[in-house]
Design a protein around this nucleic acid. Structure first.
Length: 108
DNA sequence: CACTTGACAACAA
DNA sequence: CTTGTTGCCAAGT
C-alpha cells in the first residue's frame, strides 16, 4: 500500500545509505528529482511511523544533526552515528564531505 | 478552499 | 551569528 510515492522513494534511498556514511536532504531530493529537500525531511519525519529507516544517517547540508530533536532522545542520533564510526563534533558530522553518500553512487 | 508549517537548500546581506 | 528571499510540495489547521 502506497501512501505517497515519494515517501517510499525517500525511505528506499535512505535505506541504501551504508553504515559509516551520511547523506543529505538535498542529495536525496536531487536524486529523486521529485519534490524538494523539504519533502525529504518531511518524509523522514514520518519515517518513525514507517518501516525501519536509518534516518540518523540523513543530515542537513551542513552535516548538522538537524533531525536529532525528533528522535526519542536528542543524543540517540549521535550515538548511532558514532557507533557506525562517524565522528560527531558539536552535533555535526566530522569529515562530513568525505562521509557524504549520494544515491547516485550506487549506480556508478 | 486558503493559509501555515515543516528534520531544507542555497544564496545574499 | 541572524534575518531575509525564493523554490518546492504535502499535511495540518
Amino acid at each position: 500500500m502506497k501512501k505517497s510515492h515519494y515517501f517510499e522513494q525517500v525511505y528506499e534511498v535512505t535505506r541504501q545509505i551504508p553504515a559509516g556514511r551520511v547523506s543529505t536532504y538535498g542529495a536525496i531530493a536531487d536524486f529523486l528529482a521529485l519534490g524538494s529537500a523539504r519533502m525529504v525531511g518531511w518524509a523522514l519525519n514520518k519515517s518513525f511511523s514507517a518501516e525501519d529507516v536509518p534516518a540518523h544517517r540523513v543530515v542537513n547540508r551542513k552535516g548538522e544533526l538537524s533531525g536529532r530533536i525528533h528522535f526519542p532522545s536528542p543524543t540517540m542520533m549521535e550515538e548511532l552515528l558514532e557507533n557506525e564510526g562517524i565522528k560527531i563534533v558539536d552535533h555535526k558530522v566530522c569529515d562530513f564531505k568525505k562521509l557524504l553518500w549520494k544515491p547516485a553512487e550506487e549506480l556508478l
